[in-house]
Nucleic acid binder design. Structure first.
Lengths: 353, 353
DNA sequence: CGGTGTCATGTTTACGTAAACATGACTGCC
DNA sequence: GGCAGTCATGTTTACGTAAACATGACACCG
C-alpha cells in the first residue's frame, strides 16, 4: 500500500521555535545518529571507510527522520544538475512525443532527468523567452526539437559552452544533429512506386518552413529526375489529416494521378478519405504511400504503405551525443542519420493497365 | 542570427591558475563592477535601493561577463525549485502527450518548469524507482498520470508533505484528482446511439487494469440498464487499433450488432477496418462511436462520431491544483471533472429497418 | 552645529552537501 | 616497546545566492 502522511501545516509547532524545519538535512541525521554530518554524507554516497555498525546507525536515523538528499545543494556542490532540457514547440506531433519519450527513458537510464521547455508558438518572443529562461534553468545541456531557422529569426545567444544537440534540422554545420534519414526514406517511397510501374509520383509535402518537409520533397524530386520522369506540381499541406484531405480532393480530380507520396501518415489518411469520397479505389486506381509509420497506419483503409521512422533510436542517439558533450568527450558538429525502412502494406499496387 | 561561441576546452588557460572558472558568479560581476556581490544580487532581483549609475555599471559587467544566475544556488537559498514533476508510463498514448503538453505550457506561464519522470513498465520496481528518485529530484510537487492502483501494488512511501495531484484515477479520497468526466462522456455516447433507434449498444472496452476503461464501461452498462435494454457481452481491447480490429471481426460476425461504442478512437479505427473488410457498411448497417476525438478522427472512413476530451483543460487544472497546494492554499482530496462533449460525424445513423 | 533620519552600499551568515585535510586509535613490525 | 602505517571519523571550507544586519555619507532640523 502507498503510504502518504498528511501534509503538515506550515505553522505547526513541531519544533520549540514554533517554525518547523522544512526539510531533514544531513545535520539532523548526524545529530540523531551521534556522528558527524560528513559520516552521513559518506553513508549516503556509499563511500568506503564507514564501519558497519556506524553505517547501520546512520541508516536507521535516516529512515526514522525520512531523510531525502537535497538535490539543490548537491547540484551547487557538484556544478551539475543531472538534467537535460528539451526545447520544443509542441508534443502534438506524433513524432515529437515519441522522440521525447525515448529521450526521457534513455536519459533516465543514464541518471538524467528531463526538463521540458515548451515554446508556445514559433514567434521570436517565445523562442527568445525560452532561451532566456534556459540560461537560468537547472540544465546541463539542451536538445532542440525545433526548426533551427526559426531560432535564427530570433536574435538569441546561447550561453558560451552550452551543450546542444539538434533534432530534425539542417544545422549540422554548427551543432551535432541527430535525425531520421529523411532523404533516404523518401527515396525508398518514391522508388517503390516507380518499381510498381507507375509512370510518375505526385507529392503532398509538409509546410514550407519545415526542414523535414523540404528534405522529403527534394528527395522525391531527385528520384523522379534521375529516372527521367516528369515532375508533377507539388501539393502542400500542414501535416494535418484535414490538409491531406483537401489536397487529396485536388489530386483525385486529376485522372492521370495514379501514385501519391504523402509527407506524413496523417496527410496520407486525409488523402485516402478524399480518394474514397471521389470513388477512386486504393490501391487499384491510385497508390498512396505515407511517412512515419504511426501506430495506426496498419489500420487505415486500406492499411497504409509507409516509411517507418525509428523515433526511439533518434531519442537515444540525442541523449548519447549530448552526454558525450557534457562529459567532454570529442564530438563536433555533424549529422547522425537514423535509417528508415519502407513498410509495404495494402495501399500500393501496380497501376491498372 | 543565433550566436554561439564554441565550447571552450576544459584545459584552457583563461585563468592564470590554468583552470578556467566554470561559471560566472555574482562575485565575478561584483569585482568587475567594483561593488559588492550583494549589490549585484539587488540588481539581479530588481530590489529597490540601488542608484541608477551603480545599476548600470552592474548591468554592464553582467553582460560583459555573460552572467547567468545559478539556479541551484537559488533553489538552495529559497528552498523551492520552481519545477513540477510529471510521473507517467509513456507519452505514446495520445491523451497523455496532450495532457503533458498542456501541463508544460500552463506551468511555464506560471514560471514553473516541467520534469518528466517516465516509468518504463508498470512493474513494482520501476514505480518504486521513480518515487525513490523523486525524493531526490528538484521538484516542488508531482502530477501523477498513472493508475494509482498500480502504485498501491508497490510499497511506496511518498515523502511526508509531498504535493501531489493525480490524473485519470479513482484516488479522489486520498489526493486531489483532475480527470475528464469519463462517465458522462460514455453516457452521451451510448444515449446518442439509443436515441438514433438502436435497440442496444455493444461496447469495446479498454484493458481491465485501466481506470478510465472501467469508468467508461460501467457508464455504458448503467445507461443500458436504466433504459431496460439487454447488455451484450463486453469486448476488451488494449487501446490499440489492432486490438480494435480483432474485436471488430468478432462483432462483425454477429448480425444483431448494429451499434458499437469503442472506448477510444484508435480501437474505433480498428473496428471500422474490420467492419469494412467484412462488408458491413458504416453507418448504414452498423454505427460506431469512439472516445477522445483525436485530431485524425474526422478523417477516418467514415469520419468518426466520438466523445471530445479537453486534454488542455485537464492539464491546466492539474497545474492550478498543484500550485494551490504548493502555495499552501486550501485544497484537499476530491475530484475535479472536466466536461466532455459528443462530436457527431458520419459514423452513426439510425439503424436500417 | 550637533543630532537624528534616510538611503546606498558593504559584511556576515545560512541554505545542504562533500572534498580536502586533520585527528586519534589501533595494528603490526623490528 | 616505540614508531610508522592504516583506518574510521571529525573539522574546515567552498559552491552561489540573498536575507539580515552593519556602516558610513549626507540632509534636514532645531
Amino acid at each position: 500500500m502507498i503510504k502518504i502522511e498528511p501534509p503538515r501545516l506550515r505553522a505547526s509547532s513541531d519544533v520549540p521555535g514554533g517554525r518547523r524545519k522544512q526539510r531533514v538535512s544531513m545535520a539532523d541525521v548526524a545529530r540523531l545518529a551521534g556522528v558527524s554530518s560528513q559520516t552521513v554524507s559518506r553513508v549516503a554516497n556509499g563511500s568506503p571507510g564507514v564501519v558497519e555498525t556506524t553505517r547501520e546507525q546512520v541508516l536507521a536515523a535516516m529512515s526514522e527522520l525520512g531523510y531525502r538528499p537535497n538535490s539543490a545543494a548537491r547540484s551547487l556542490r557538484y556544478g551539475r544538475f543531472n538534467t537535460i532540457g528539451v526545447i520544443l514547440f509542441g508534443l502534438s506531433s506524433i513524432g515529437n512525443s515519441r522522440t521525447v519519450e525515448a529521450i526521457a527513458t534513455h536519459a533516465a537510464a543514464e541518471g538524467y532527468a528531463i526538463t521540458l521547455i515548451p515554446v508556445g508558438a514559433p514567434t521570436q518572443d517565445n523562442v527568445l523567452g525560452a532561451f532566456t529562461r534556459m540560461g537560468e534553468l537547472a540544465v546541463d545541456g539542451v536538445i532542440l526539437i525545433i526548426e533551427v531557422h526559426l531560432l535564427d529569426a530570433a536574435a538569441v545567444t546561447l550561453p558560451p559552452g552550452a551543450h546542444v544537440v539538434v533534432v530534425d534540422s539542417d544545422a549540422g554545420d554548427r551543432y551535432p544533429v541527430v535525425d531520421t534519414d529523411q532523404a533516404d526514406g523518401a527515396r525508398q517511397a518514391v522508388r517503390h512506386l516507380l518499381d510498381l510501374g507507375h509512370h510518375t509520383v505526385w507529392h503532398l509535402a509538409g509546410p514550407a518552413g519545415s526542414f523535414s518537409a523540404e528534405r522529403r520533397a527534394s528527395a522525391w524530386r531527385q528520384v523522379l529526375e534521375e529516372a527521367g520522369r516528369p515532375v508533377p506540381a507539388l501539393e502542400r499541406g500542414d501535416w494535418s489529416a484535414d490538409s491531406g484531405y483537401r489536397a487529396g480532393l485536388r489530386l483525385a480530380a486529376d485522372p492521370s494521378c495514379t501514385a501519391i507520396f504523402a509527407a506524413n501518415d496523417q496527410m496520407a489518411l486525409g488523402v485516402l478519405r478524399a480518394l474514397h469520397e471521389r470513388g477512386r479505389r486504393v490501391p487499384e486506381e491510385v497508390s498512396v504511400v505515407g511517412f512515419d509509420d504511426v501506430a495506426d497506419a496498419g489500420s487505415y483503409l486500406p492499411p497504409l504503405t509507409t516509411v517507418h521512422q525509428d523515433f526511439a533510436e533518434v531519442g537515444r542517439r540525442c541523449v548519447d551525443a549530448l552526454l558525450r558533450q557534457i562529459h567532454d568527450e570529442p564530438s563536433g558538429p555533424g549529422t547522425d542519420l537514423v535509417a528508415t525502412r519502407l513498410v509495404v502494406r495494402a495501399s500500393t499496387a501496380a497501376p491498372e493497365v
